[in-house]
Design a protein around this nucleic acid. Structure first.
Lengths: 200, 200
DNA sequence: ACTTGAATGTATGCGGCGTTCACTTAGAAT
DNA sequence: ATTCTAAGTGAACGCCGCATACATTCAAGT
């Protein structure tokens, strides 16, 4: 392992460098503006070099999406740290979801909105894990006898709501509701209405 | 207006033909796979011809997004036809939203997920109109004394939920909840949980 | 009917991109 | 020291977005 490359010829850690630079370009210019050649140029490497580490552009984006999904899940876990009770955990993990989307809108959109040629299996695995986390929380709620419905139905609504709010936030559509794009605030408001329903 | 072009030179209705063909390509290959040259080729016209009708590729996509937003709104209106009472209207228009996303996933993603260089004003207008429709329904609910919260808060949750469910549906993530991507069913389930809340 | 100007489509070319491939280099294993 | 392999080079191909100069058709206006 060569962490400090002395030779200009071999970069030493091109694969990781590509992923880091790719995420940066993704946030700045979207998936269309991301170019392997540009990445190579930015890292002082030839146009063909990235292909030693990724089969093609889709492969890089798929890996980025997989990493992004894992980081989203980690953010949800980190945010529930210390929360006790199913309701609090649900609220905090939703806020984690929104915080991630707000901090990394390009990556968030890549993870969900952009499917690199037919359901990459690794990405789906990450998704399974994240959803399993949500179900775990809702099952705790069920054990605590808090739920009106079965965990799956509640899970659909909870996930849909936070997922949709994340998109509305990063697409700057919240102004239609006269709301600021503040993950903490939106998350709390969402949770409140979700928990007790919108009807009398 | 020349609807049946006799001369091979002038297409006669290239602009509309481009939009139609573009939507087709969008659904088949996504916004990245959509190419003005390919559209020209498919319509038997030179590579530069589309630029007589659209300033650039972004302009075409922006127009497509604007049209898509309007059609989404129309589908929501059509679906509430005949429904009386705020609650029924809310449920039906949500189902219209989901039906549109399910029928035109590429267009739906374009409308929301893809922002062609900085907030095209027309697209935003269409969004305003659609959201105004939602607010109208919720204000009717408020007049009927059905709502626990103010219309805006309820609107945030309702829109978020249906928006998120639409994305989960077209990204084929509903299988994580063991649910079929059936707009009518999902819409009803969502509405039920939304209306009464998930908690006891 | 004739002219004229605008609208529409063609031909061509530039630079960037994804991708491939034959070649070179550097470092590790023997 | 030799060999083997992973990593990078540089040139090439075709496609793309886009710009420009040119050609053709249509619709008035006289």
């Amino acid at each position: 392992m060569m962490l400090c490359p002395k030779s200009a010829y071999h970069h030493g850690d091109l694969r990781d460098a590509l992923l880091v630079a790719a995420e940066e370009q993704l946030e700045e210019e979207g998936p269309a503006g991301l170019s392997l050649r540009k990445l190579g140029r930015a890292l002082g490497v030839s146009p063909g070099a990235p292909y030693r580490h990724f089969e093609d552009k889709d492969a890089l984006l798929t890996e980025l999406a997989t990493i992004g999904f894992r980081r989203l899940y980690e953010m949800m876990l980190a945010e529930q740290e210390g929360a006790v009770g199913g309701q609090a955990r649900l609220r905090r993990s939703g806020i984690g979801y929104l915080k991630f989307a707000y901090a990394h809108p390009g990556l968030f959109r890549l993870v969900f909105g952009w499917m690199p040629t037919g359901d990459a299996p690794q990405r789906t695995e990450s998704g399974d894990a994240a959803f399993a986390g949500l179900v775990d929380i809702l099952e705790q709620c069920a054990r605590e006898n808090l739920l009106r419905e079965d965990p799956m139905s509640a899970g659909l609504l909870a996930w849909s709501a936070v997922h949709g709010a994340a998109f509305l936030m990063i697409d700057n559509n919240l102004k239609l509701c006269s709301l600021e794009p503040d993950p903490e605030m939106i998350g709390n408001q969402l949770h409140h209405a979700l928990w007790s329903g919108i009807a009398k």
